[in-house]
Amino acid sequence: MNTFQGAALMVFSLLTAMTLSAGLRGLVRKRIVAVWLAIWTIGALAIVWPRSTFLVARWLGIGRGSDLLLYLSVLFMLVGFFYVYGRFRRLDRQITVLVRRLAIEDAERAESERIPPTTPRDASWSQDAS
């Protein structure tokens, strides 16, 4: 085992420990813990036994193990981006709903308090609503 493998293995065991502790403390759902543990295990396996990636790659019809890793990481990143983008859009919409609600409530409060002499309204407007 060379130095790089030793260091990487240490990182992976640390990650595994962190995942397990987060799972035990109930911070992360069990299913998510399992997914992360699988990822760390596969990572560690690929580091300690590099030939394994080659075997999988050849089985899939890809020439080299490192190519397989490259393709997989690009795939994961794209999926990740899409997921984050979807989250971002949803958040964006939620902020808009919030801002809209505040704008309407503010206007209605000002109306009921009859503050603004600059915004004349007559009674028929609110009667229309009924």
Binding site: I95, T96, V99, R100, A103, I104, W125, A129
Partner: peptide, 26 residues
Amino acid sequence: TVLRHFVNRGQGAALQTGISYALAHG
């Protein structure tokens, strides 16, 4: 009648706010 978005949300958002308000007020 002025409604204020206190953060800029874009024209589509602002129109929807105005439309919702107008509908709520008959």
